[in-house]
Amino acid sequence: MEYLVAGLPGACVAALGTFLPCYLFTIIPAPYFKKYGKRPGIVAFVDGITAAAVGAITGSVIVIAQRSITDLPTALLAIGTTALLWKFKKLQEPVIVIAAAAIGLALYPLMHH
């Protein structure tokens, strides 16, 4: 969507805004988590946060899928991405986003001539 609003720079800023906080909130507290991560209160907190994150991500995926999967090419891209994630469980998110963006940029001119 950001690509449609502000072109490639808008899409890049949106991707940065999406992934940078996740990495910062993972990297910065990592040393403290290694030190205190075995405490029962911390374990319970992490379990609760994990459950909340899974719920939020699932809801987001449903909303985005309803708005993004609008025709056969987008459906095929969604199915292909799901199949790749199913087969390669350790596939990094930035790789998926970059590959999907490249495919979208390649297919967009062909579909809207």
Rank of each mutant, 00 (worst) to 15 (best):
H113L: 08
T26I: 02
D71R: 01
F88A: 08
A102H: 06
G55Y: 00
L72R: 09
V13Q: 02
K87Y: 15
A101I: 00
I28L: 14
I27C: 01
P9W: 02
G17E: 06
G59N: 01
T50M: 08
T70Q: 10
I62Y: 06
E93A: 15
A52K: 03
Y36I: 09
K35L: 11
L77Q: 11
V97A: 15
P9L: 00
I79T: 11
I62H: 00
C22P: 00
L16M: 08
P94C: 08
I69F: 01
S60Q: 08
T58S: 08
F33T: 08
Y3G: 13
R39I: 07
T82K: 00
G10K: 03
G59F: 07
L16N: 03
F25A: 06
V5S: 13
I49Q: 10
Q92L: 10
A106F: 14
F19L: 12
Y108I: 01
A56H: 01
A56C: 05
V54K: 10
A102M: 09
K87F: 12
T26L: 09
F45E: 08
K34W: 12
V63S: 03
I27A: 14
E93M: 15
V5M: 11
V13C: 04
C22E: 07
I79Q: 04
L91I: 14
L84N: 13
V61F: 12
T82S: 13
Q92S: 12
A15S: 13
